[in-house]
Design a protein around this nucleic acid. Sequence first.
RNA 1: GCCCUCGUAGCUCAGCUGGAUAGAGCAAUCGCCUCCUAAGCGAUAGGUCACAGGUUCGAAUCCUGUCGAGGGCACCA
Length: 593
Amino acid sequence: MKQDIKDLISAALSALTSNGQLALAEPPEPQVERAKDASHGDFATNIAMVLAKQARTKPRDLAQHILDALPASPLVAKAEIAGPGFINFFLAEDAYRAVVPRVLEAGRGYGRSDIGAGKRVQVEFVSANPTGPLHVGHGRGAAYGAVVADLLAAVGFDVHREYYVNDAGRQMDILAASVWLRYLELCGEELRFPSNGYKGDYVWDIAATLHREHGDAYRVEAGQVFAGLPPDAALEGEPQDDGGDKEAHIDGLIDAAKRLLGDNRYRYVFELGLSTILDDIRADLLEFGVEYQEWYSERSLTESGAVNKAIERLRESGQVYEQNGALWFRSTDFGDEKDRVVVRDNGQTTYFASDIAYHMDKLERGFDRVIDIWGADHHGYIPRVKAALKALGDNTDRLDVLLVQFAILYRGGEKAQMSTRSGEFVTLRQLRKEVGSDAARFFYVMRRCEQHLDFDLDLAKSQSSDNPVYYVQYAHARVCSVLRQAADRGMVVEPSSGTTHLDRLSEEHEQALLRTLTRYPEVVESAALKEEPHQLTHYLRELANELHTYYNAHQFLVEDTALRDARIKLILAVRQVLRNGLGLLGVSAPESM
RNA sequence: GCCCUCGUAGCUCAGCUGGAUAGAGCAAUCGCCUCCUAAGCGAUAGGUCACAGGUUCGAAUCCUGUCGAGGGCACCA
C-alpha cells in the first residue's frame, strides 16, 4: 500500500521532469511514511522538502507542483500540503477494506514478497564450539539467527543457514583430554582433574560411554599420565594452588594423552566427545525449531588444504611476515589494531587462519551476501576478519557481522547468574524446559540484538496478559474460539467472497484493524532488510491488542447476517496475519488456550 | 590506556536511516463480565530523550567532547 503511494509520487515527479518544470537528473525514491496523526491523513511524504534545494523552489511551491501532477487514483481521496512542505495523503474510505480478501486469498503467502529477487544470502549463526551443551547465550543467537533467516526467506532471498563447527583446534583437544581423564577415574585411577579441563557432568557421561563399551582398553596408570608435567594452577574456588600455569599443564596432558594412547585410540576418544556433543547440539536446536542447510566443518578446511591456500595467498601478496618463529598477518595495514598470528611457532595454524579460509570460501561460494551472527564477546574479531578479506582483495561489503548481546536471566526479580565455574550454567535445554520453546523464541527476539536482554523467567512462564507471548497467542485462540461458537450455534462460518459486505465495517475499531493489516507486509519487509525481528514482535502485540479491544467493544456473532459475515471475514484475516507472523518467529499459533 | 555497544516515564523497551504535539507494556490509581474465553478491555497519572556544544528549515535520531553501564583488547577458541 505504501508502495502504491510511492508509485504515484514517482509518476508525478517524472511528469514534472519530462515537461521541464523540474530539473532533475534522476528523481530519487520518494520517502513515504505512515502518518502518526490522523489529522495528517494516512500517508505523508517529505519529498518536496528534500528536493527543494536542488529544484531551487520553495518547498511548499514544489509540493503544489507535485500535487498538480499527481495522477488520479481510486486509492486516494485527497492529498494536501501541510506544514513546511509535507504532502499528506488521505485514502478513500474503502481503500483499506480490500486488504481482507487480499489476506484471505494469499493465506500463508500474505506478507511474503520477492524483493530479495532470489539473491543468495548465507546466514551463519550459533556456531558454538562442540565442547559442551548450548547455554542461554547461544539460545539468543539461535532464535535471532533463525528468525532473521526466515524473514529474509519470506521476502524472497535464497537463504542458506549454516553452522560452523569448530571440530579442530586446542579446545577440542582439551575436551578429549577431559573425557579421557574422567574415564581413567571411572577405571579407578586417582588423579587431580586439571583446572582448565571441562568439568561439566556431560563429560562424565561421555567417559561412562567409553568405559561401558571398551572397559579398560584405554586405561593408563595415572602416575604415567602426570609424570613430568608442568604444574597446574589453582583450581577455581579451591585453595589448592600448585603455582603453575594451567595452560602449560593442560597442553602437557594433551600431549601425554596423544603419546600414551597412540593415534588411533586418541582419535577415537576425540571423535566420541565431538560426535556426542554435536549430536546433542543438533537435537537441541532442532527441538528449538532451528534448522540448518549445512554444518560446515572447520577440520575440512584444513584437510582440503583451504587453510594453507589462504595463508599462501596472503604470503604471495606480501601480507605476512615471520617473527619469533611465528607467521604474522599484517592486519594493521587494513585497519586492525595489531597484527595477528596465523601460524604458531609450534607449526599449528590458528583459529584465525581457519576463519580466513572459511570466509574466503563463503565468498567463493558465490553468496551475494554473507551474514555472520556472533556473540558480543567476539566483536574485537570483526576488524581482523575484514582485514583478511580486504588483503585477499575481496569486497567486504558483502559481509555483514551482527553482534548479539548477552541475555541475563531473572528469576523472582533476582539475577539468575550463570557461572562457568565447574560447568554450572543454565543450558538452552533447561530454559526450553522451564519456559517452553514458544516463550523462549519470542522473548529472545523481542529486543534489538545490540540491546542487552533482560530475560524475565517468571514473566515468560506466566499465563497472563503481561506475558506478550500469551497475549498474542490468545488473540489467535480467541478468533478460533469465536468461530467454534458460531459453528455451535449453526451460523454460517464460511465467509462470502471478495469485498462483499465489507462496507459494513465502519466502526473505529474495525478501521484500525484494517489499517494495521495493511501494514503487515511493510513490517515484514523492514524487519527482514534491517535484520530486526523485534519489529515483528511489536507489530504482533499491536495487532493482538486491537483484536482484543475490538472483541470487548463489539459482538461479532450478531443477528444481522451481512454484518456478521463482514466481521467474521475481518477476524479471519486478523487470524491469518497472527498466524503468519508467529510462524515467522517460530512460535506456535494455538487454536485454544 | 585504546576500541566496540548502549544511556528515552519508577521498571523493561519502541521511536520506521533527520520530520509535524516523544510512544507502548509493566508497576500505581480508578472503572468494565446477565454478553462470542476477564489468559481480555477502558481511563488517569507519569519525560530537561545522561550532560554540553555543533551541523540545518528541523535533532531522541548525524558529528565532537564529558559522565555513566556492559563488553573487548592472547602464539585461546
